[in-house]
């Protein structure tokens, strides 16, 4: 399964970006092979609707779960429509977040925890 972690940088040691739609990088990790890829987020400075764009981008990478800090209503709807689970309020580094997820310490939540435009 592919897990997507929002990140401030492109490495395991980067901090988890607390914003979903406007995070710096999306890190995709395969839970079986731990294959790692960092994708720079093209939507960082988009005018509007970035949650939707980011949601579609995560879906296109076949991710099944997103680990992030906060997520807005549009992104939340998009991920839900794509059948992607979301874990909110994730802190620390990408590596820590991934380990916690693998150990089963993180719980998938439903619905947004931030207002529209909160990440601007």
């Amino acid at each position: 399964m592919i897990v997507c972690i929002t990140s401030e940088g492109d490495s395991w040691e980067s901090a988890v970006d607390q914003r979903f739609g406007r995070c710096r990088y999306f890190i995709f990790v395969d839970t079986e092979s731990t294959e790692f890829s960092a994708v720079e987020n093209p939507n960082v400075s988009g005018m509007g609707g970035v949650g939707i764009q980011s949601g579609q981008m995560v879906a296109s990478k076949q991710a099944k779960v997103v680990l992030t800090g906060k997520i807005g209503p549009n992104a939340s709807q998009t991920l839900e429509a794509a059948g992607i689970g979301v874990v909110l309020n994730v802190k620390g580094t990408v590596a820590q977040a991934f380990d916690q997820f693998k150990k089963g310490d993180l719980k998938i939540t439903e619905g947004p925890n931030a207002d529209e435009k909160a990440g601007m």
Binding site: I52, Q56, S60, Q77, T78, A81, A82, G83
Partner: peptide, 20 residues
């Protein structure tokens, strides 16, 4: 204006779209 999200069949179980 990013008002439409489309999740193709390969990504969502049956294909889905959202309009904001």
């Amino acid at each position: 204006y990013n008002a439409i999200a489309v999740l193709p069949r390969s990504q969502a179980r049956e294909g889905n779209s959202i309009f904001l």
